[in-house]
């Protein structure tokens, strides 16, 4: 019995002490996890210079990977997101920002969709009103073409006369 308890204690100790280094290797410190989340968050707002409209968070290119490293280094130095983005804009231009700033020519990007929606809405209203107008006119024209009682009687009379003839 004692041997069994001693053996269990040894196995337990081996598992316990054996698990510590393993855990240390596989679980990243919370700071590192938070840093990587920040890197990814900022990288998602920066356009990859060598890809077709991909952010450097999504691009598999080497340059995107190296740019993510630059973001990491700047964040480690205590820079803010605005400072990191300013660094890339100073080198690659405003183009590198996935979300263009709403000023100057860029305003078109922000205003044009609204203008187009309004114009489209106006066009729909105009067309619907025109269709409704056309339908009413057709109905009026149709009602204008309904024979009066007098005409109906006249036709009936003429038909009757024709039958008699």
């Amino acid at each position: 019995m004692n041997r069994r308890i001693a053996l269990s204690a040894v196995v337990f100790a081996a598992m316990w002490f054996g698990s510590i280094p393993g855990n240390a290797q596989t679980t990243a410190p919370p700071d590192s996890v938070a840093l990587e989340a920040r890197v990814r968050e900022i990288a998602a707002t920066i356009r990859c210079p060598v890809c077709l409209n991909l952010s450097i968070a999504d691009s598999p290119s080497e340059l995107a990977r190296d740019m993510r490293d630059v973001i990491r280094e700047h964040l480690k130095r205590g820079e803010t997101e605005a400072q990191v983005k300013a660094f890339f804009e100073a080198r690659y231009g405003e183009w590198v920002d996935m979300k263009p700033k709403a000023h100057g020519f860029n305003l078109l990007v922000w205003l044009l969709p609204g203008v187009l929606v309004l114009a489209g809405g106006g066009l729909i209203v105009l067309l619907v009103r025109r269709w409704i107008g056309n339908s009413a006119a057709t109905a009026t024209a149709a009602s204008a073409g309904t024979p009066s009682d007098e005409d109906r009687h006249r036709v009936q009379d003429e038909l009757a006369r024709g039958e008699l003839d």
């Binding site: 060598v50 080497e62 340059l63 190296d66 740019m67 080198r91």
Partner: peptide, 13 residues
């Protein structure tokens, strides 16, 4: 080797 200077210079390719 890690493109740090290229990025500092705004190199795309």
């Amino acid at each position: 080797l890690r493109s740090q200077t290229a990025i500092e210079y705004g190199v795309r390719g």
